[in-house]
């Protein structure tokens, strides 16, 4: 993954965390840029397969995670489509898809869920399987997983 993208992702996350709503009015936040129809050439996002592929394997992964016995706990009553949408946005923004992720940062998202290592790795496995099922090339898969692995700290809370 390219450093600038990561940094900008971090910046986004930070920004999002700082500027959370204090007033009753609709908060001002950076405009969300949705995943594009055509992925920017050369980007990891493009190599992953662009919006159709990412949407597909995210969709698949979340469905698996939300129904798998070991991981479904933290998805109880959760709006899965929202999660999928946000995750696609995030991956898109992290992999140079040109998106602007407007969701909460990983720490905030997972605060209170007490995600275990096991659950995290399960998710990673499911994501890997799903990417493979959707014919995402090995290199791209590994790159994405690397990126997400960096978030483990924020996700897993013991």
């Amino acid at each position: 993954m390219s450093q600038p993208t990561f940094l900008s992702a971090l910046a986004c996350v930070f920004l999002a965390g700082v500027v959370h709503s204090q007033t009753a009015e609709p908060p001002a936040k950076p405009a969300r840029v949705p995943p594009p129809a055509v992925a920017p050439a050369g980007s990891l996002y493009a190599r992953l397969g662009g919006t159709p592929a990412v949407t597909a394997f995210v969709d698949d992964t979340i469905e698996k995670v939300a129904t798998s016995h070991d991981t479904k706990r933290s998805f109880d009553k959760v709006n899965l489509q929202h999660v999928k949408n946000m995750l696609v946005d995030q991956i898109c923004s992290l992999t140079g898809g040109g998106c602007v992720y407007t969701g909460d940062n990983m720490r905030e998202v997972h605060a209170g869920h007490k995600i275990t290592n096991a659950e995290f790795y399960q998710l990673v496995e499911m994501l890997r399987d799903s990417m493979r099922d959707h014919d995402v090339p090995l290199a791209a898969r590994n790159e994405l997983l690397e990126i997400l692995a960096a978030m483990k700290r924020d996700v897993v809370k013991l």
Partner: peptide
Amino acid sequence: KQSARVLAAD
């Protein structure tokens, strides 16, 4: 359907 769901959740 997938696309519609994505949109409906936006």
